[in-house]
Design a protein around this nucleic acid. Structure first.
Lengths: 146, 146
DNA sequence: CCAGTAATATTAGATTATCTAATGATTAGA
DNA sequence: TCTAATCATTAGATAATCTAATATTACTGG
């Protein structure tokens, strides 16, 4: 018997990579900002949870610690993030976003939302609301499972 | 003024990479099939449009020709796709999926849909239908723009 | 017909993302 | 205290992606 989510699964499998590619291309297209999607997401996390650790970033993004480490290397090398000692636990690294990082994040976020928003503007109000609520449902289902 | 798609854009930007990561991890987790998402998508295209060219794959996936070329290299090296001469245009390459490729595709598709479907099963019928229709809307909006 | 332009695929070379395995340092617990 | 677990990193591999450069083949306007 086909599960009740089968048709939906097929759609998700087809559409999500397409939208993802758009987002990736979009992010890279902004000269001088040039954040990759994982870099962008890292900055979002670090800004929101100031003082998070490398393990924190890895967990939120669903990455292994070495992957997160290299990702942060890249951001630190561009002066967008700093690593500090954690008081109390000297194994741990405390991550903080720099002014420059915060600015890059704000610009990238604005530009990406704008260009996504422009495309989504082709939908009528009902569809738009449906998409928004569908995204919430997907977030509930997928977050933590990456 | 904020565009009418702004909130939706924010959601998409947050949720799509999360779902994408799940799909990627899921695809790689099936030993012996081990198709990456781009490989999977290439096979889908080649199976559907038998005899397509390298440029055809590139266009459908939103890749540059060199990227598509390497992708096909990988699939050809694993015996899942063949390159043939095109009658009529000798620059062109005709791509065909092999029996082995078709079998790998079928298995990967089945496994991925199953595991996606299992997660999506947590949604109630109304939400599921909303997500399905939202995916259709997104496909309309994004396809071609990658 | 032929000279130049366009199209198709590829190679070369770079960057980034991701993994697993191994290492180092520090903390926590029996 | 000594052993375990935890946190970050380094090392090394593979894959996806890009741009630029290079054939090869087809098309087109004089």
């Amino acid at each position: 018997m086909p599960g009740k989510g089968d048709e939906c699964a097929r759609e998700v499998l087809d559409v999500v990579p397409t939208v993802m590619r758009f987002i990736r291309t979009e992010m890279r297209s902004h000269r001088a900002l040039e954040l990759s999607v994982p870099q962008f997401r890292s900055l979002v996390i670090i800004e929101r949870a100031e003082g998070t650790s490398l393990a924190g970033v890895a967990a939120h993004l669903g990455l292994t610690p070495p992957s997160a480490c290299k990702l942060i290397d890249g951001l630190a090398g561009r002066g967008m993030v700093t690593r500090k000692e954690s008081s109390g636990d000297r194994r741990r690294v405390t991550l903080e976003i720099t002014a420059q990082g915060a600015q890059a994040l704000a610009s990238a976020r604005k530009a990406s939302q704008k260009s996504l928003s422009r495309l989504l503007g082709a939908l009528d109000a009902e569809e738009l609301s449906r998409v928004t609520r569908a995204m919430s449902a997907l977030r509930r289902v997928f977050e933590g499972r990456s």
